[in-house]
Each structure stands twice: as C-alpha cells, then as structure tokens.
C-alpha cells in the first residue's frame, strides 16, 4: 500500500487553494497526556466528497473539533478555505456548515425555533431572509410537517435531520458532516446520500466522517484513514481500493477437492471456509482454472473474483478490524 502516501496530497486533485482543508503536523495532546491526534497532514481537495475513516477513538472527532476552532491544537496548523483556524473563525465559519458528533438541540424549542436560534448566532445571516431560509432548510431535510413540534419529542432520525438542516441554513462552501446517517433508517440513509451527492454537484466540498465503509465507498471521491491518532493513508477512493487485491471465490460442496486442484494449478493463499474456497487470483486465464476444477469432478456452483472493497483496504492498512482502539 505504498502507492498512496500518507503525506503527499493526491496530485490530480490539488487545486490553487491547496485544499479546502489543509493541516500540517496537526497535533493535540490532552491535559492527561493522552495523544489524541499525532502530526496530522491532511489535504481535502476542493469539490471532493471526502470520507474520513477510522475506528472509534482514533482521533477523528478531535481533528474535526480542531478544524472548527473548538479545540486549540497543541502544535501544527489547520487551514480552512485557505485561512488559518481558529484565528479566522469569524471569516471562515459562515461558509462552513457542520454536524459535529450528532445533533444538539434545545428540547424546549420547536424545530423551527432551534434553526432560528442557530441562524441568529451567525453574524453573516440576513435577518430579513431568516424565516424563508429556515423554511427552505426544513423542507430540504423533509421536516416541514414537524417544524412546530418541540425538539424533545423528535426521534433520533428527526434530530439528525434537524442537525443537517442547521448546516444547510446558508449556502456553504464546505460541509463537515460527522456520522450524518447515524440513527437513520435505510430510507433516511439513502436520502442523506442523495443529498450529499446533490450538494457536491453544486460545488460544495463535503467532508464526511463515518464508520460505515460501504457508505464512504458509495458517495466519496476521496478518503483518509486514521488509526490511533495518526493518518494512515489518504487519496482517491479508487486508488485506495485498488491497493488491496481482490479474492477468487469458488463456491462448491467439494471444498477439499477444489482446494487441492487450485493448489495444483499454482494458486496461492488457498483458504477453505464452509462451502467457499477463496484464494489469491492468479495471473493467467481464469476460464482454464475453472475448466480444471470441473474436469477434476468438483461441482462448481459459483466462480468469481470479488473486487477489493474499501473494507479490505482498511483491514490491509490497519491490520485490524473496526474495533475501538485500546
């Protein structure tokens, strides 16, 4: 996996601004001495949908909080839209919509009043268009019918939608979405994904943190992987997935024979699991391999090369599953 370096930005995606988000040696050590983020060099190209991956406790949220000016870095720099953070917060943040660690709402206010309050906190928001923009944001996330309901009566999915609406109150150049599909049902997830694609097609850069690898794979053009406070890799999703090789999968009841024949044909890394035999795909003609299996009397029910997923790439990179980092 050395094709994609952890420090070099993807040359094809670099733009004049050197990235909508750019960090150099960004480090956060909490007072207890715990190193949450360690020398992060992250570059998010403009116009990308950028997936930010990592197990729980890998430093994703601390990174996002530093980017948004909520936490002061111990060392290193973070630039948002080309301006230093947290110094340029007031100039930069009106262009940035954010959903950080889930939505946070005033339970005693209605959904609409929650948005009116967040909008009133934005110095660049025009009070004359406030109500229209709030109504448009509610409409966009499908909450118009529940706008007058107290937020404490909202379901988790509705709160998540309201949090998204708050990020969409103004036209944004960058959206930072931390686990945006958390708590949503499959239909809601699909709606969020289509919303993200729609926003991206309008030219908004979307920075999306998620623990759902297939979600990242479906919507993201670029991705970065963090583990234990360090950036392991970043680059275009296609490049990342290509780094991990696919697997040849033979489905058969005669697993013992199949494994023997595959080994005889010189196929490496043969693994038998239930009614499947998996192996490293060979360089030669696959049809010949299949013919050899059939000739040997193996009842082949399925013969396929499974494309490497981002998950395979992730496991290959971190050497671990998606568990909490100890």
């Amino acid at each position: 996996m050395d094709e994609v370096s952890a420090t070099e930005p993807d040359p094809g995606a670099g733009d004049a601004e050197h990235g909508v988000i750019q960090t150099r040696g960004l480090t956060k050590r909490y007072r207890g001495g715990q190193l949450a983020v360690d020398g992060l060099d992250l570059t998010v190209p403009a116009g990308s949908v950028f997936g930010f991956l990592g197990p729980n406790g890998s430093g994703k949220t601390t990174t996002i909080r530093m980017l948004m000016g909520l936490i002061e870095p111990t060392s290193g720099t973070a630039r948002l839209l080309g301006r230093p953070m947290p110094r340029a917060s007031r100039a930069v943040l009106p262009h940035v919509g954010a959903l950080i660690e889930g939505p946070a709402l005033y339970g005693f206010l209605s959904g609409k009043d929650n948005l009116l309050r967040y909008d009133a906190a934005d110095p660049t928001a025009d009070p004359r268009t406030r109500r229209a923009r709030v109504a448009a944001a509610l409409d966009r996330v499908g909450l118009t019918a529940a706008a007058g309901k107290k937020a404490k009566a909202y379901s988790l999915g509705m709160k998540q939608r309201l949090g998204l609406a708050a990020a969409l109150l103004q036209p944004r150049r960058l959206l930072v979405l931390d686990e945006p599909t958390n708590g949503l049902d499959p239909q809601g997830m699909r709606e969020i994904r289509s919303l993200v694609r729609e926003l991206a097609s309008d030219g908004t850069t979307v920075f999306l943190s998620s623990h759902l690898l297939d979600e990242i794979e479906q919507v993201c053009t670029h991705a970065a992987v963090m583990a234990q406070g360090r950036l392991i890799t970043q680059g275009a999703v296609a490049d990342l997935a290509a780094g991990a090789r696919g697997r040849l999968v033979v489905t058969t009841p005669d697993t013992g024979d199949a494994a023997r024949v595959l080994k005889e044909q010189g196929v490496a890394d043969v693994v038998v699991a239930e009614d499947r035999v998996t192996a490293e795909p060979p360089e030669g003609e696959l049809a010949e391999l299949n013919a050899a299996l059939v000739t040997a009397g193996v009842r082949v029910r399925g013969f396929v090369v499974e494309r490497a997923s981002l998950e395979d790439a992730f496991v290959a990179l971190t050497g671990e599953g998606f568990d909490v980092a100890g």
Binding site: P94, A132, V141, E198
Partner: peptide
C-alpha cells in the same frame, strides 16, 4: 421515524429565495 417526516427534497427543488452560493 415519525410520520411527520416527508422525504427530502431532490435536486432542483430548492426555493428561489435562497441566495446563490458565495453571496455571504
């Protein structure tokens, strides 16, 4: 999920009163 929710709006359905991007 409550029945009060309706599907999110699709592309192009954004009302015109929302300012163009960049007009901050």
């Amino acid at each position: 999920m409550s029945r009060a929710e309706t599907p999110m709006r699709q592309a192009g359905a954004e009302p015109p009163e929302v300012a163009a991007p960049g007009a901050v």
